[in-house]
Design a protein around this nucleic acid. Sequence first.
DNA 1: AAACGCGCCTGCGGGC
DNA 2: TGCCCGCAGGCGCGTT
Length: 274
Amino acid sequence: MPELPEVETIRRGIAPVITGKKIVAIHILEMRLRRPVNADDFVKWITGQTITGVGRRSKYLVWEMDNGAALLIHLGMSGHLGLFAPDTPPAKHTHIIFDLEDSIQVRYRDPRRFGVMEVVPPGMLAEWPSLAGLGPEPLSDEFTGASLANAVQNSKRSIKVALLDMRVAAGVGNIYANEALFTAGVDPRRLCCELHTGDYDKIAAAIKATLSRAIAQGGTTLNDYRNALGETGFFQLQLAVYERDKQPCVQCGAVIERGVLGGRSSYFCGCCQR
DNA sequence: AAACGCGCCTGCGGGC
DNA sequence: TGCCCGCAGGCGCGTT
């Protein structure tokens, strides 16, 4: 479900509400996420702490605690994180509930359980394995056409597969890889090693522009994505290629094609993307 | 070592 | 109506 723009939208929704609030209790209803939830660590490091900030790294939300511990939340394919009144009944597949002071409740729901929820003890965030291997944030200044080229230009993978590698561009997922390559005018099947400097400049710029536009629209709601308040995003109305196979290209009218790269659906205009 | 593909889960929509 | 299949926003692991 959520790629960088959706996670960022959720972050912006919950941060002003939960920052400065104390975590009164945590209810773990289901421990079998992608990795088993460590309930002992929640009790030891998170319960009773005050949240001092909510950050994001790639598709991870990072809740910072006043004791220096952190909580990492990854929403996988179907994860939701939302604010609720405590007296409303939890939806099916609600796995973890945080009771904060002032009757604020944050609920984590994840039907497919591909998400991750893990506690980072104080002082260990910098070297934490889940984050250590991530590449540059695509919206940061260190992510450029030159840095992207440097990372992948010797690779024999297709550019689309490379963009989905979190070591290359942390937070780009299947929707935005497809959309950015359309904006850049680059065929997703092209191999990294056959692209030129100008292509990488266009791709990096297109990634930044696409992610920024999507954040401004509150993310993409294909089926069930909702922000922290339960509202949909609107970027699905601006998708040029994703899930638009057999439909006319918004730019040239040619038929959008679908293929499979790295086991993931890829959508492109064979006319606009070379 | 890079590159590929499979598996983890539940739910939904389409075809029969 | 209902069953079966393919597919879904992600990622880690094993194999080649």
